[in-house]
Design a protein around this nucleic acid. Structure first.
Lengths: 346, 346
DNA sequence: GTGGTTTTGATTGACGTACCTCAGGCGCGA
DNA sequence: TCGCGCCTGAGGTACGTCAATCAAAACCAC
């Protein structure tokens, strides 16, 4: 075949450093029993010949298997569904790379049940966990316990900053809210009126933060627009439809609608019931089949989202890195806030 | 350590199928000399025990080394600079994964020189090439020659559809132009006036396509805005400054500026010279240090871009897949059109 | 059956690294 | 000088796969 430039191996390294393979091995794996001077000699040789450990061969020899769990809320969320399918898709590829990924459902709204599930995880058969759960003291304690048992833990989508989690994979909700506000304000340039804000529950950290970021920008930059208090549907589609209808009926000047969380289907139904939807600027979060179709139909003007594929792959990369004790390459793991309009819908 | 669920190996597979390792190997690697019935038996066993080939071990045994070249235009382009540094960054990681990546500069504007460089590539020491070059007959022929020599070839950033290239990694320029237009039109809601369009050269395929997409949307959806003919700087910063200044002076009602290509620095200088920049909506392409700073300063309102890190990683993944004769997982390689405003600048 | 062809099995040695054992080297203090 | 640490070297086996060889077995037609 073709001539290949051979990449330096431990053998080359041993020769270059003038030591034996065993010593090279001891240095590379930071095993004891090597004089400081010899360590330096080997490290210098690494630099000189540009040795890079072949992690795949290493994992092979080490018989390394990664066992990861991804904990996702159950219940009827379009967003979680897309996340779940991203996990399913990723786990196929991961399996070929010596990682087993299992998805663990948790009851959505009961902090104790969440904590119970987390505490029930068999830490002996796991190397790392990615958790999407609202931050509560119970969850925080459960995470700390998992960390205490030596697992790698990343918070997914929604951060658990008070806990010991190794990393947060997701977007900054304040910035997401600010982004939504800028688009809302600019799309309504020159207009005066009210903005309807809806969400599933303002208990959720995300909603609070998004709302906070949204309000800050609206107050600062678009004072002509009046942002109404949040309407909460509490997982009740009927309630969402009703409240939206009522709000539209009682205020004549609702120019825009900001949907901070799930419940986009009943929201859109409610809006449709109140006449021409294309008149108002509608901005929603999370790309799902519903929001995608609404974008295509012109019912939603912009979607603020995060790429679920990246989310999952990033979480798994971070877990791996943590297990290997390797540095995390942060820029690659930073999830971007995606703005999607009809024209850049891929 | 921890108990690991062992993943099935070829040995397990051989036992399960009731054949020898040699036969399993022949089936897995599609080598001849196995009866159809036996092939089926092995494949059934694969399904039954869920065998997945360990790609890393396979590559190790295969002694596979990938040698890729990334061909980028030289010359003072901020975008190419960011691309180049993304390549540098990626090649570190790639090296650990048995791929050598070298960057090859080509003279920007001479199709013959480009073709000469491509034809001068030592195909014997390369497995694949990613090429960013304007589409010309010479380049097309050179690409076809590379393909003929058995290399994998992907077009990067700018497509070479008339050639034999395996894949295009980049964004749809029409859609990018349409996206810019929607933002421009909506940010200027209710206003009447003119839009200035600037680029380096309208010779470039990207510029033509972006302009096309931009115009289509502007004419369709925002007829109150009048889009002026493109100003071309032809790589001359001074000319860009001058032309922009002149245009602003001769028309009093320029509401927005659309920068389709490079030359953002002199463009911004020209705009600054003509008074309050924040009055006008400025939309530019490609995230670079200049556009980033301009976003932060409020001089640019939105940047339409593509993530260079993804671009490079995607190109390399595709090259690998092509070399291995493996299917490309398209959704992962589809580069998104990113809309960046100050608020979602990560 | 025979002879010839096709299929299969058994075995071996890589690939680059990890991890283990065992033996021998050194210096140092007693 | 001896003994006792501590360092180091030599060598081996393993990881899961590829690739090659050679011999044995199965198949086929006549």
């Amino acid at each position: 075949m073709k001539a290949a430039i051979p990449k330096p191996t431990v053998h080359d390294l041993a020769r270059e450093a003038g030591v034996s393979l065993a010593t090279v091995d001891r240095v590379l794996n930071e095993r004891p029993g090597v004089r400081e001077k010899t360590v330096e000699r080997v490290k210098a040789a690494v630099e000189r010949i540009g040795y890079v450990r072949d992690t795949h061969a290493a994992n092979l020899a080490r018989r390394r298997q990664y066992r990861f769990a991804i904990v996702l809320p159950e219940g009827p969320s379009q967003f979680v569904d897309t996340l779940r399918s991203a996990v399913r898709e990723a786990s196929g590829a991961q399996f070929a790379e010596r990682a087993l990924v299992e998805t663990i459902p948790i009851p959505s709204h009961d902090p104790h049940a969440v904590a119970r599930t987390l505490n029930g995880l068999n830490t002996a058969r796991l190397d790392g966990v990615a958790i999407m759960a609202p931050e509560t003291p119970q969850v925080r304690d459960a995470v700390d316990r998992l960390k205490g048992e030596g697992l790698a833990v990343v918070a997914l989508v929604s951060d658990l900053p008070s806990s010991d989690r190794d990393f947060f994979v997701g977007i900054n909700s304040f910035a997401a809210g600010r982004t939504a506000a800028v688009l809302m304000g600019r799309f309504l340039r020159g207009l005066t009126g009210r903005i309807l804000v809806v969400t599933n529950t303002m208990q959720a950290r995300d909603s609070i933060e998004r709302r906070f970021g949204f309000d800050a920008v609206m107050a600062d930059e678009f004072p002509a627009l009046d942002v109404l208090p949040s309407i909460e549907s509490h997982d009740d589609p009927e309630r969402m439809r009703r409240c939206v209808g009522e709000a539209l009926a009682s205020y004549g000047d609702i120019r825009g609608v900001y949907s901070m969380g799930s419940g986009n289907t009943p929201l859109l139904e409610g809006l449709r019931g109140a006449g021409d939807l294309t008149d108002r600027v509608v901005i929603a979060h999370e790309m799902t089949p519903v929001t995608r179709q609404a974008l295509l139909d012109g019912e939603v003007d912009a979607v603020i989202t995060q790429n679920v594929g990246h989310l999952v792959r990033s979480a798994l990369r971070v877990l791996r890195a943590r297990c290997d004790g390797v540095e995390i390459f942060e820029p690659q793991e930073r999830i971007r806030i995606d703005i999607v309009i009809r024209e850049n819908l891929t």
